[in-house]
Simulated scan of single mutants.
Amino acid sequence: MNRNPVNEFREYVNNAVNHSDQGTGADMLKEALTRLHRETDYRIILPVHDEILLEVPEDEAQQAKEVLKTIMLDVERKYVTVVPAEAEAKIGPTWADAH
């Protein structure tokens, strides 16, 4: 097998960056989940990659959407300082409908 040192180096660098990004994303999600649990009474149904699925009474949906977005932005700004923070929250009767 013929190994190319340049390609191997690129692969190592790519893996190092990817692992760092994935780890930071996981840390941000865990912190957001912890804050939601401590600061709200919302029922956390499921974290999916970089999403959090909540179940709340319909009359609290808009407020929950704003709280979730605020927490996600606060956490993201703590970890990511080079690019602007973005977060999106949607309301729907099911997870599929909210996508």
Results as ranks from 00 to 15, higher is better:
E60F: 09
E58A: 15
I45F: 10
I44H: 00
E51R: 00
D50R: 02
L54Y: 09
E55P: 14
I45R: 05
D50K: 04
I52W: 13
A64S: 08
L68D: 04
V56G: 00
I71L: 07
T70E: 12
L54V: 14
Q62L: 15
L46C: 11
L54A: 08
I52H: 04
V67S: 03
V48K: 00
V48H: 03
L68C: 12
I52E: 03
E51I: 01
R43P: 12
I45S: 06
L53S: 00
Y42C: 02
A61E: 00
K69V: 11
V56M: 05
V56R: 01
I45K: 10
E60P: 05
E66L: 06
K69E: 14
E60K: 13
K69Q: 09
K65C: 07
A61L: 06
I71S: 06
L54T: 04
E66C: 06
Y42T: 05
A64Y: 10
K69S: 13
L46R: 00
A64Q: 01
V67G: 03
A64D: 05
E60Q: 15
E60A: 10
Q63H: 11
V67T: 13
L53R: 04
E55W: 05
L46Q: 07
E55Y: 12
D50G: 07
I44Q: 04
Y42D: 02
I71P: 03
P57R: 06
D59Q: 15
V67R: 04
R43L: 13
I45G: 04
D59P: 15
D59A: 15
V56Q: 01
E58P: 15
V48W: 08
Q62N: 12
E66Q: 11
K65V: 01
E66S: 11
A61F: 11
I71M: 05
D50N: 08
L53H: 07
I71R: 00
D59V: 10
Q63F: 09
K65H: 11
